[in-house]
């Protein structure tokens, strides 16, 4: 099923054009990395894909439905099949980890289950399973305001993993983690997508992570798609152009693979 965007435009309330005509077609099971300078529009694009921002123009088809055409009920059901890992974890500080993770399935649970789970978590095993994949199982009953930034980010990830969405979206899911953990986490997201055959779109600030782990890379610049290529075909010239405003290329480690002939090897900025 996947999704397709046709000529999607989005203007924020203050008149800022964050997306200026985006065309993007992604088939079911594809794994796509979004890269681009800060302020390019990655978050905005992902929120449109999560059916949480309504574009001001163009056509959006997600998982075979049209979110802004169907009724609110259908929209809600569609949203419960899409999971977005937010750039800064949107978790109330005083909530416990187990509750924060279980909240991933609120869209699928009947109301009584949501209420009961507030008193006594209904599926601590499920939450613990997802947390264990991120090496966080022992913090199951900790309070979220007692976690580090990277740990909180992993809780937010566990929530979306627990949701088991058909469209898995991640907005800089590793921005608060160290390089080794980032590597593991991005690998885990990819492994999950492959295993369950779901579509994965992740925005990443570290270009090398994107190139190493994702078959397809989309460059976003000033609210439009700058390039949309298989990872192997992304050249340094394209990247330098994409990050022209920032001066140096953002990397987490070494550039992967063999660089195109004639280019000097890139070094960590």
């Amino acid at each position: 099923m996947g999704f397709s965007l046709e000529g999607v435009r989005l203007t924020h309330a203050n008149g800022f054009h964050a997306l200026r005509g985006v065309d993007l077609h992604v088939a079911a099971g594809e794994r796509v990395a979004l890269i681009g300078a800060s302020g390019a529009g990655k978050t905005t694009l992902l929120r449109v894909l999560a059916a949480s921002l309504r574009p001001t123009g163009g056509r959006v088809r997600l998982l075979g439905g049209e979110p802004w055409v169907d009724s609110p009920r259908v929209l809600r059901r569609l949203r419960s099949r899409i999971g977005l890992v937010h750039q800064s974890p949107p978790i109330p500080p005083r909530q416990r980890v187990v509750t924060a993770v279980l909240a991933g399935r609120l869209g699928q649970w009947p109301l009584w289950k949501a209420l009961a789970s507030l008193v006594l978590p209904v599926d601590p095993e499920g939450a613990a399973r997802e947390l264990a994949r991120l090496d966080m199982a022992e913090r199951l009953y900790a309070r979220c305001d007692r976690l580090s930034g990277g740990q909180l980010q992993r809780v937010a990830l566990a929530r979306v993993l627990y949701q088991q969405p058909e469209l898995l979206l991640a907005d800089e899911p590793v921005s608060a983690m160290d390089p080794a953990l980032s590597e593991l986490t991005v690998a885990l997201l990819n492994e999950e997508a492959v295993r369950r055959g779901v579509t994965l779109v992740a925005s990443l600030h570290a270009v090398d992570l994107a190139l190493r782990h994702f078959p397809r890379v989309v460059g976003v610049k000033e609210g439009a798609i700058a390039f949309d290529l298989p990872a192997a075909e992304v050249t340094e010239a394209l990247l330098r152009d994409l990050y022209a405003a920032e001066g140096a290329l953002p990397l987490a480690g070494e550039m992967p693979g063999t660089p195109a002939p004639g280019l000097p090897p890139l070094r960590c900025a």
Partner: peptide
């Protein structure tokens, strides 16, 4: 299996 909920 995870530890029992200490708050239960």
């Amino acid at each position: 299996t995870p530890v029992r909920d200490p708050a239960a």
